[in-house]
Amino acid sequence: MNCERARELLDRWPAGLIPAGEAEAFDQHLAGCAACREDRAAATAVAPAVAALPERIEPPRDLWPDVRRRIGRPLRRTPRWRTMGLAAAAAIALVAGSSAVTLHFARGRPGVATAPRIPAIEAGYASATADLLRALDAQRSHLSPATIATLERNLAVIDAAIAESRAALASDPGNRDLEALLLAGYRQKVALLQQATRLAERS
C-alpha cells in the first residue's frame, strides 16, 4: 500500500477504523511511514470532536425580521432603510467634501477659499466607503459576476488615481488644486459604490 491509498482510506474512515480487507496492509504501511501515522493520529483525534459538534447554533438574535424585510413582494416596495441610511451618511460626507471643492472652483483663486481639512475629510470618506462596501456585500447576490468585475475594474481605476493624487499632495502639501483632485477621487469612489448599491437593491 502506498501513501495515496492510505490517505484515501483515512479520508473515508476518518476515525481510522479501516475495514478488514485492507486493514492489514494499512497497518503495515503505517508501521513504516511517519507522515501517514501522523495523519491517522490527527484523524482519530479530530473525528470524535467533530461528531460531538452541535448540528445547530442559533444565531445570537432573531434574523427573521430582517429577512422578511428584505424579501418583500414584487408589487410592494422593499424598505431600503439600511442602504438608504448608509447612502445618506455617504452623501453627507460628499457634501462636506464637495462644497469646499465647489467653493474653490467658483473662486478660481487658491488661498481665497477656506482650505479643506484633508485628514478629517479623508476619514469621512473612508468611513462612508467602508459602510457602502459592507452594504454592497450584503446585496451581492443581486449582482452578476460581470457587474462585480466591472465594479472592481473601475474601483481599481479610481483607487490608482487616488493613490497618485495623495502621493503628489504629500510632496506638495497645501496645494489647493491637488487637494481638489484628491477629494474628487474620493467623491467618485463613493458615488460609484452608491450607484452599485442602488443597482443591487430590489424594488
Partner: peptide, 19 residues
Amino acid sequence: NVVLSDRRAAWRRARRVFT
C-alpha cells in the same frame, strides 16, 4: 454556494484600503 461566492467577491480587497 452563498458563503463561497461571498469569498470570491474580490472587492473586499478594496475594503482593506480603508478598514
